[in-house]
Design a protein around this nucleic acid. Structure first.
Length: 540
DNA sequence: ATGGTAGATAGC
DNA sequence: GAATGCTATCTACCAT
């Protein structure tokens, strides 16, 4: 049987549906993931409907299963998404998502050899060469074990915790139905809860409908205007003789100029792929295109103005103010930094005042600029030497090494709680296994010999901020819908929503307050500030 | 030809 | 004692 044999795949789909129904658990319910193999992604860019009709048929079966499953009330909001203009290409319940969650939570890879979906397809001989590679990677990635050399197409390698076993298709169905249920159930109760990870896992599960809806919504882009901006880059590239400027323009042209052609869909919207479990820290990964790296107004004037609201709508744009400093003040903990925020003071002025030995009110703009670099640079363990580079390239400040050392000392004497936190993390033994955690329990493991001081400082802060943001996204998904609005993009600490013009102000208030309240749940000891605005485009 | 990686650079 | 971190994407380069 091959992928080009729809009838056989229909039969496989029916068998899979039976299998899933027999093995259904709440966990399998949340293990819902858009799955599209890399070679298919390229084809799908041209015509989603043409890609692997067999797999789409499979997805249809699975979709029915998912939406009818009594265990899955939280996933029912997905129904309109699946019926919408850009349903996920292939959606079916399998263990992939679940395995990803566990991996990102820092759990040992589960003792389940393969996803049942992949196993079934493999058994049916439906996987093309690239698919096999993908499956191979999946198994290696999650099991961290070499794939057995004796494996060949048509056979199943199932890992039972000690070794790989080969199964024919019948054995797989019989085995995985029972075994998967047993293992997944055991992982919830025996692994997640005692490790304090239930809350992080539940957040990811609740977030999923909001993510899929955001992917489905996409963001409206003015393609003609975008092309005009890109043409401006090309013209300047021809005209300028400055090699530095040429390199900058080359980066812009090669990285962004083709976005309208490659990514604007027929309805004028870009729909990037969001991966809420794509990073160690818990932040989102975004790709094809990565709208989290659209150049700023400073780097590429006029570009962000191409990202707009649909007619009759407006954008609501909100972002957290100094979120990493606030989270660090909470986690460290640092009484001095907390007090700065509680009193409504400016943390950059506080550092500048220490350095210049004068009251905060007398700090000059230049002193404040230096202090901003200091606060951001030294927070996560940067050294004085590296700070010189950083201040030069990012803030256009020239310092000698002695000045950089003084800056470092000023930072730590202004915020002694931060200094104590750095000492604590610095005392962790690099020769042993170490873990750091976010507020909700997501953890990052540093295997013995692979400890990173800086990552151990950064990840809990970045990750806790991401958790507060994800909570906000989860809450905003249904709340915005009541106003006829929807989230269209998230950029780490910034949220973009598209709302009817008639409800712009109500939506702005809703977004700002929801974001503040959600972050306050994970960062209770420091006030949270969110800046928000109503604008026709991302640039304004 | 294709695959994997290092380095630069865009964002936060 | 010292040590920014997390990404995606592009080009250049080396290996198969």
């Amino acid at each position: 049987m091959s992928v080009r044999d729809p009838a056989a795949l229909q039969a496989a789909a029916a068998a899979l549906a039976d299998d899933l129904a027999a093995a259904a658990t709440p966990l399998l319910g949340v293990a819902l993931a858009p799955v599209l193999l890399p070679n298919e992604r390229r084809e799908a860019a041209h015509d989603p409907r043409r890609v692997r009709p067999g797999l789409l048929a499979l997805a249809t079966e699975a979709r029915t299963f998912v939406l009818d499953c009594p265990y899955l009330p939280d996933l029912r909001p997905l129904a309109p998404v699946l019926a919408g203009p850009r349903p996920p290409y292939v959606v079916f319940p399998d263990a992939h998502f679940y395995l990803t969650v566990l991996a990102r939570l820092g759990l040992a890879p589960p003792r389940l050899g393969c996803t049942r979906t992949a196993a079934l397809l493999l058994a049916e001989g439906t996987l093309a060469r690239d698919d096999e590679l993908e499956f191979h990677n999946l198994v290696e990635r999650y099991l961290k074990r070499p794939f057995p050399a004796r494996w060949k197409q048509g056979q199943i390698a199932l890992f039972d915790g000690r070794e790989y076993l080969d199964w024919d298709r019948g054995a797989v169905l019989a085995h995985t139905a029972g075994r998967a249920t047993e293992l997944l159930r055991a992982m919830t109760h025996d692994h997640l809860r005692p490790r304090g990870m239930s809350r992080a896992f539940e957040l990811e599960c609740k977030l999923l409908p909001a993510v899929v809806a955001m992917e489905s919504a996409g963001v409206a882009v003015d393609g003609a205007r975008f092309a005009a901006v890109a043409d401006g880059w090309r013209r300047e590239r021809e005209a300028t003789a400055d090699p530095e400027r040429q390199a900058q323009l080359d980066k812009l042209i090669t990285s962004y100029a083709n976005w309208p052609r490659d990514y604007i869909e027929k309805d004028g919207r870009m729909r990037p792929h969001l991966d809420p479990l794509g990073t160690d820290s818990g932040r989102f990964a975004c790709s094809r295109p990565n709208l989290q790296q659209v150049p700023s107004e400073y780097k590429a004037p006029g570009l962000r103005a191409c990202f707009r609201a649909a007619p009759g709508h407006t954008l609501v744009i909100a972002d957290y103010a100094q979120i990493e400093l606030r989270v660090a003040a909470h986690l460290a903990p640092c009484a001095a930094l907390r007090e700065v925020f509680r009193a409504g003071r400016d943390p950059h002025r506080a550092t500048a005042a220490t350095l210049a030995r004068k009251p905060e009110a007398e700090v000059t703009p230049h002193e404040r600029k230096l202090a901003k670099a200091i606060n951001f640079g030294f927070l996560f363990g940067m050294g004085a030497e590296r700070f010189r580079d950083y201040a030069q390239t990012h803030y256009d400040l020239a310092l000698d090494l002695a000045a950089a050392e003084r800056a470092r000392e000023a930072f730590f004497s202004t915020f002694p709680g931060i200094a104590a936190w750095h000492r604590r993390v610095g005392a962790m033994s690099p020769r042993e296994d170490n873990f750091v955690r976010t507020t909700l329990g997501r953890r990052k493991r540093f295997p013995a010999g692979h400890f990173s001081f800086n990552a151990a400082l950064n990840i809990p802060v970045q990750g806790t901020a991401a958790e507060g943001f994800k909570k906000a996204m989860t809450a905003l998904h249904p709340a915005l819908a009541e106003l006829g609005g929807r989230g269209v993009l998230c950029v780490h600490d910034e949220y973009l929503a598209e709302v009817p013009e008639t409800h712009a102000e109500a939506a702005r208030t809703l977004v700002q307050q929801t974001m503040q309240a959600a972050m306050a749940e994970v960062v209770p000891s420091v006030p949270i500030a969110v800046d928000s605005r109503v604008a026709p485009s991302w640039a304004e």
